[in-house]
């Protein structure tokens, strides 16, 4: 309980601050690993990425940060993805994160992040709101 409250307080102070998750060059192999993991054999994905692929770009970095923010229990609440531009191998994607809001309910912390993806032409590729739920596990 105490731990959850500290996380929520720390994150509330970060609301609105943007940070860089990284810059990533999209390789064909990344897209192929994604479609194979889903089992999507659509030939269209040989030259472009499926729209939901973008959420995995910087996913490892975001996951590591989440694990540090929520060392106890963590579940995924929701995902809201807006797609603006298609992604193709060779694109260079810059990923930034931001805390949009923090709510506490029934001993759980609901934290909504906004992840923004832009390409090498400074075009907005996608924006995604991810709500994560931090909870206390019984010790």
């Amino acid at each position: 309980m105490a731990q959850k409250a500290i996380i929520a307080e720390e994150l509330k102070h970060k609301i609105g601050q943007e940070w860089l998750l990284g810059e990533f060059e999209i390789e064909k192999g990344m897209v192929q690993r994604f479609v194979r993991a889903i089992g999507d054999s659509n030939p269209r994905w040989e030259t472009m990425a499926p729209p939901f692929f973008i959420v995995t770009v910087g996913g490892e970095q975001f996951g590591q940060q989440l694990a540090a923010m929520f060392p106890d229990g963590l579940l995924h609440g929701s995902t809201e993805l807006e797609c603006h531009q298609p992604v193709r191998p060779g694109d260079k994607i810059t990923v930034t994160g931001k805390v949009l809001n923090v709510r506490e309910r029934s001993q759980m912390a609901f934290v909504t992040f906004e992840i923004t993806y832009t390409n090498q032409r400074q075009e907005l590729v996608a924006r995604c709101q991810q709500t994560m739920i931090g909870y206390q596990t019984e010790k």
């Binding site: 994604f34 993991a37 996913g59 970095q61 975001f62 996951g63 989440l66 963590l74």
Partner: peptide
């Protein structure tokens, strides 16, 4: 096995 493939593809190693 598919979950492990997804972990590798998405970077979600939780």
């Amino acid at each position: 096995r598919q979950l492990v493939m997804w972990a590798g593809a998405s970077g979600d190693y939780y």
